[in-house]
Nucleic acid binder design. Structure first.
Lengths: 171, 171
DNA sequence: GGGCGCATGTAATGAGTTACATGATTGA
DNA sequence: TCAATCATGTAACTCATTACATGCGCCC
C-alpha cells in the first residue's frame, strides 16, 4: 500500500510534473508494473501535499486548463528514501487468486479441468507476448529491471502450467 | 475478488461446517494460499446465505456457544462450478509491490541497494523454508498442487534475485 | 460541428482490515 | 484462578475503484 506513494514520489524525484502528465506516464510506460488508476493518483498527490512531501504550484499555458505542478520537497525526499529502503528490503508475501481454483480442480471432470487450464495457459502466453512486444526504455535501467522480473515470473508460470497439464493428462 | 466466495463454497461443498471451524481450517491449512481474515469470512458466509447459496442452521452442543452450521445449496453448487470454471480458465494479471522499489534502485548508493536486496533474499529464503516445512496433506491433491505452485514461484524468485544481485555486483 | 485531447477532480460504492466486544467452558 | 479455546460478530476505518462531471482548445 505504500508502494503507490513510493511510485509517485519517485516519479516526482526524477522530475516535477503535473497530475495529468504523471498519469499519462504511468499509463504509457508503467501499466505492467502498477495498476494504480487516475483518480487514485490525484487523491494521493493531494494527500502527499497535505503531508508536506510535495509542493504544488498552479501553471497555465495560454487558455488551456490550469495545471497543478507537483515537486518533491526535502522532507518528501527523505520519505522517498525510507519507503524505498523498506520496499527493497522486504519480500512480499505472495498469494494468488488462481490457486483457489487449483485446490478444487478435482471437482470437475478431468477433461474439462484440463481444457480450462489450457485456456489459462493461452491467456498467459498472450500476456507474455504483450510484455515482449513492449519496448525497452533505455533511460531507466530500473524500469527494465522490474519488467524483466515480471517477465521472468510469467515465464516460470508458463513452464509450470505446461508441465502440470502434461502431468495431469498422464495420470 | 470472487475467489473468496469460491473458497468458502468449495470448503462447504466438501463438508458442511460452522464458521469457527471454517476459519480454523483456513488458518491452519490454507494460510499460505489465502490471506482472508476471520471477520471477512463471517461476513461472506452471511452474504452467501442471503443469496441462497448456503443454508444455515443453528446447533448447540451442551452449554457451549451456539454455532451456525452452513451447508451449500443446489444453487450454491451451480455457482461454485461457475466460479471454479472462471477461476481456472483465467490467468490473473500479476503486479508486485516489490517492483516499484526495483524501478528506483539507482537512487541509492550501489552498496546499500545490494545490501537491501540481500535482505530481501534472506526473507525470501525464510518463506521458502516455511513452505517446505509445511506438511503435505494427503487427502487433498488440489491443495498440494496450489502449494507446489506457490513454492515454485518462490524458488523462481529466489533464483532471479540471486542472479540479479550477482549481476549488479559485477557492474 | 463533432469528437478527441487536455486537465481537473467528485461522489458513490465496495471490499476488506483492525480493533473491539461478549461470554461461556476447559485445563493447568 | 488464570489463560486459552470456543463461537460469534460489530464498528470504524482505509484504500481504491467506477462512473460521472466539467469545460476549453484543436483539428478535420
Amino acid at each position: 500500500m505504500d508502494e503507490r506513494e513510493l511510485l509517485l514520489l519517485g516519479i516526482l524525484k526524477v522530475q516535477s510534473q503535473h497530475g495529468y502528465q504523471i498519469n499519462e506516464f504511468i499509463e504509457r510506460n508503467l501499466s505492467r508494473v502498477t495498476d494504480m488508476k487516475k483518480p487514485t493518483a490525484y487523491a494521493l498527490l493531494e494527500r502527499l501535499s497535505q503531508a508536506g512531501y510535495v509542493e504544488v504550484r498552479s501553471e497555465q499555458e495560454g487558455k488551456r486548463p490550469p495545471r497543478k505542478v507537483y515537486s518533491i520537497t526535502p522532507s518528501g525526499e527523505r520519505v522517498f528514501i525510507d519507503l524505498l529502503r523498506e520496499n527493497l528490503a522486504r519480500a512480499e508475501r505472495m498469494t494468488f487468486a488462481g490457486d483457489v481454483g487449483l485446490m478444487f480442480l478435482d471437482h470437475l471432470p478431468q477433461a474439462e479441468a484440463l481444457d480450462l487450464l489450457r485456456q489459462r495457459l493461452s491467456h498467459l502466453k498472450e500476456q507474455i507476448s504483450a510484455h515482449e512486444r513492449a519496448p525497452r526504455h533505455e533511460h531507466s535501467q530500473g524500469v527494465d529491471l522490474a519488467m524483466e522480473h515480471i517477465l521472468m515470473l510469467l515465464r516460470a508460470e508458463q513452464t509450470w502450467l505446461t508441465a502440470t497439464i502434461q502431468r495431469l493428462q498422464e495420470a
